[in-house]
Amino acid sequence: MKKTALIYGCLGLIPFIAFGVLLPLWPDDWHHGLLYAFNNYSAMILAFLSGAVWGMTISGAKPDKSTNGLTVGIVFSLVAVASLMMPLPYSLYLLVVAFVVLLILEVVLMFKGIYPFWYTLMRAALTAVVVICHLFVLYWLNDLTTFGMPVDHI
């Protein structure tokens, strides 16, 4: 299971890297669509990860211990939806913060015995790449606006 989770996790990084880090390599006419594809994919992955928290909590929860994992699952799904209703770059900032906070909460769940250690390490590495990709997009977005392209026209 560890190998499969790692393979799927790495495959899930492909759109982040292709849309985020490699944005300047795509034709200029595609930037608008790629930025929104990146934002939408990011929100979708955040919602997916919050669903994983829900599932892991249900499968690993001990009846005598409260984990708040169900609440975490719902809240971060709502954050993902909220990010889709916000303009760029604010949605990207929200998503970066949400990925980092979700990872911190998953570390807490690991210490409560809900998440295995290997999974938390994998998630930390994947989250680091996701955050770096978001920072690249924010950099490119700032670079585009510096040259007179307003964010709403990207």
Rank of each mutant, 00 (worst) to 15 (best):
I7Q: 07
G9N: 01
C10L: 14
L11N: 05
G12S: 02
G12V: 02
L13Q: 00
I17S: 13
A18W: 08
F19L: 11
F19Q: 07
V21E: 08
L23E: 11
L25W: 12
L25G: 10
W26I: 03
W26P: 00
D28Y: 13
D29Y: 05
W30G: 03
H32L: 02
L35N: 13
N40W: 09
S42N: 02
M44E: 08
I45K: 00
L46Q: 00
L46A: 00
A47D: 04
L49T: 07
L49S: 02
S50W: 08
S50Y: 01
A52V: 13
V53M: 03
G55V: 09
M56E: 10
M56V: 00
M56D: 14
I58A: 13
I58E: 15
S59P: 12
S59M: 13
S59Y: 11
A61G: 14
K62M: 06
K62T: 09
D64Q: 11
D64E: 15
T67H: 12
T67N: 08
N68Y: 15
N68I: 10
N68K: 14
G73Q: 05
G73D: 06
V75F: 13
V75I: 08
S77E: 01
S77L: 13
S77G: 08
A80W: 05
V81S: 02
A82R: 02
S83V: 05
L84F: 04
P89N: 00
S91N: 05
L92Y: 00
L94F: 12
L95T: 01
F99R: 07
V100A: 15
L102E: 03
L102V: 11
I104W: 11
I104P: 04
V108D: 15
L109Y: 08
M110F: 11
G113A: 14
I114F: 08
Y115W: 14
P116Q: 15
L121P: 12
L121D: 08
M122D: 07
A125S: 04
A125K: 11
L126P: 10
L126G: 01
L126C: 07
V129W: 06
V130P: 14
V131F: 10
I132P: 07
I132S: 10
I132W: 12
I132N: 15
L135D: 13
L135Y: 09
F136W: 04
F136Q: 04
V137S: 09
Y139Q: 14
Y139V: 06
W140A: 02
D143H: 15
L144Q: 13
T146H: 15
T146P: 01
H153D: 14
I154Q: 10
I154C: 11
